[in-house]
């Protein structure tokens, strides 16, 4: 058994392996998957000297605890949280050396939802269709972490960044998502479009890696009937029969039969990944390119 590995001491509520996902297979029904807060995952990789596509860990609210078998450099970013090594506080958002056998504890998020743990060499589980990402919709990739699991790590490839910290956006107190209307905005009455772009929603606790669900005014359709299944993109705002918009995140289905009223700018999805349930949410029209 390799001595270059993480032993999972505390898996946390939901911790998954994520990289840049497996785009290019949507025509086979394979979701793109990948880190929800992609800039945070790229940042922790840069801090530990990895290429941006190395696999990291994505935690959910409660963090996780890991014991490396040999010395590694780690960096924790995304959602702010306390980080300790053998009980001593260490830096968040900066490279940290963790000796072999020491306990790295990534604490509960003090703001935001998802913390990212980058490790020198990256998490080296077997890739599936070119990616190590866990896809919670289709079950591709490694299973979510469990207590006692062992995660192989790759050989360190680069030199960790020489920084004490890197600027990272704060998780949003209010989530503002810029939306290009369409392709199925004509399925909604003008009044519903006004509600969509002027109303206030809240992030629902039913949100997950598949979609950011919302609570707020229902959007009434101008048409009844079924939309034949059509391809879905990242950031698509689909409106199911209950009228509450759902923003598709990385593990979204590749096709769907509910109308998409608009599409959120890709640059705004990192903030969506960090919006805790209850966060006020507005959709703001943004022009088409």
């Amino acid at each position: 058994m390799t001595d270059h590995a993480f032993c999972v001491v505390r898996a946390g509520a939901l911790t998954t392996v994520q990289d840049e996902g497996r785009p290019g297979h949507a025509h086979l029904g394979v979701p793109r998957s990948g880190a929800l807060d992609a800039p945070a995952a790229a940042l922790v990789n840069r801090l530990v000297g990895n290429a941006p596509g190395a696999a990291v860990l994505e935690t959910t609210l409660s963090g996780c605890a890991l014991r490396p078998r040999s010395e590694v450099t780690v960096a924790v970013g995304g959602a702010p949280c306390p980080v300790t090594v053998d009980g001593r506080a260490v830096a968040w958002g900066a490279p940290v050396r963790v000796p072999g056998g020491a306990l790295l504890d990534v604490g509960p998020a003090s703001a935001g939802v998802r913390a990212y743990v980058g490790v020198s060499g990256g998490v080296a589980v077997e890739p599936v269709l070119g990616s190590r990402s866990t896809d919670l919709l289709s079950g591709l990739g490694p299973a979510p972490l469990t207590d006692g699991a062992v995660l192989p790590l790759g050989p360190p490839a680069g030199v960790p960044a020489r920084v004490d910290g890197a600027p990272q956006p704060r998780p949003p107190a209010e989530l503002v998502l810029r939306v290009a209307l369409g392709p199925r905005d004509d399925w909604f009455a003008p009044a519903a479009l006004r509600v969509f772009t002027r109303g206030t929603y809240r992030v629902s606790s039913a949100s997950n890696r598949i979609g950011l669900r919302t609570e707020g005014p229902a959007l009434e359709r101008a048409r009844t009937g079924e939309l034949p299944s059509e391809g879905m993109v990242l950031g698509a705002v689909q409106v199911p029969p209950d009228g509450r918009p759902v923003v598709f995140l990385a593990d979204h289905p590749t096709t769907g039969g509910y109308p998409v009223i608009g599409v959120v700018r890709t640059a705004d999805l990192a903030a969506a990944a960090q919006a805790v349930p209850g966060t006020p949410l507005r959709f703001v029209p943004a022009g088409r390119r």
Partner: peptide, 15 residues
């Protein structure tokens, strides 16, 4: 195009 996704009455081109 990064993705060419056919469906019932449509083809989606992404990327």
């Amino acid at each position: 195009a990064a993705e060419i996704v056919p469906a019932a009455r449509t083809v989606l081109l992404d990327g």
